[in-house]
């Protein structure tokens, strides 16, 4: 197992208010895709949702599943901007699930569950999953050579919950190269143990192997510099609220997140990490 429920709570449950200070207003905690050099984070986050929805061939008459829905930014987008008749989200975090259901978005339902163990008879016409797969495999499992099997089980599960003809807009962080510099190594170790415990990011070739025989890769878009800009903007905004964060959540929260976000910016710049978006077509038997 990668990240379990406790670990996801560690990652996301500092306090919604804390994240509200430095994420965009819709609370997207994943990579935005910028359309121009100085575009705002808000606009770029909507663009990201637009791209993934287009990859998933979302239209108003379809039902869509968002695997790892976070605070529901994508569900909200699917329900309001794309007018889909039904949008279901799955998250491990109870506070996220409550938050999403409290908003009573039309056609939206959020389920608190481990997607891999989630039992449902419902079949969806389209899938979106944004940076959830990154949490599935632990470093220990990767060392034992289990990564591909774990990811393949995920793609199999995705296949099972979809109707024939489904499309899938997937976004994942990627790991590329382990740093050889001590400080970078320590920073990344810190991030994977303190901020996001449990998960090890996949490599691009892992995904390429694991989608078979369930999904066909139609498009892969590399977005490394978009994530560099996204994390740099989060860092900039968080630092604007330094005094308040130190006062309300303590020095360690500010210092930890400052280090975490700085490390992310550098990791994407140095290509230790990257980000990819995939347009996947369901392989129907």
């Amino acid at each position: 197992m990668g990240s379990n429920k406790q670990e996801v709570e560690v990652s996301y449950d500092v306090s919604n208010e804390f994240f509200r200070l430095w994420l965009d207003e819709r609370m997207n905690y994943t990579c935005a895709v910028f359309e121009s050099e100085h575009q705002s984070l808000e606009a770029a986050q909507l663009n990201k949702l637009s791209i993934l929805s287009d990859f998933a061939k979302v239209t108003a008459n379809k039902s869509v599943l968002d695997i790892g829905c976070g605070w529901g930014a994508c569900l909200e987008y699917l329900a309001t901007s794309r007018s889909v008749k039904r949008a279901v989200g799955v998250t491990l975090s109870s506070s996220q699930a409550e938050e999403v259901n409290r908003r009573k978005l039309p056609g939206v339902e959020c389920v608190e569950s481990d997607f891999m163990k989630w039992e449902t008879t419902e079949k969806f016409d389209a899938l979106v999953s944004i940076c959830m797969l990154d949490h599935l495999c632990s470093p220990e499992e990767a060392r034992k050579g289990k990564a591909i099997d774990i990811y393949r089980a995920y793609f199999k599960k995705c296949h099972e919950v979809t109707n024939p003809g489904a499309w899938f807009g997937l976004q994942t962080i990627l790991r590329n190269k382990i740093p050889r510099i001590k400080k970078d190594l320590e920073d990344i170790y810190f991030c994977t143990h303190v901020i996001f415990p449990g998960g090890l990011n996949p490599r691009l070739e892992d995904i390429v192997q694991a989608v078979n025989p369930y999904w066909e890769i139609i498009t892969v878009k590399q977005r490394r510099h978009d994530y560099e800009r996204t994390t740099a903007e989060w860092l900039r905004r968080m630092r604007l609220h330094e005094a308040r964060i130190r006062q309300e959540w303590g020095d360690h929260v500010f210092d930890d997140y400052d280090r975490y976000l700085s490390t992310c910016v550098r990791a994407f710049d140095q290509f230790y990490s990257s980000l990819a978006q995939y347009e996947l077509r369901r392989l129907d038997a």
């Binding site: 359309e35 663009n47 637009s50 930014a73 909200e76 987008y77 309001t80 901007s81």
Partner: peptide, 16 residues
Amino acid sequence: MRSFVEVLRDNAVYTE
């Protein structure tokens, strides 16, 4: 890059 119409659509999430 999205067109004006796509941006107008996407902006619908800004309900307030």
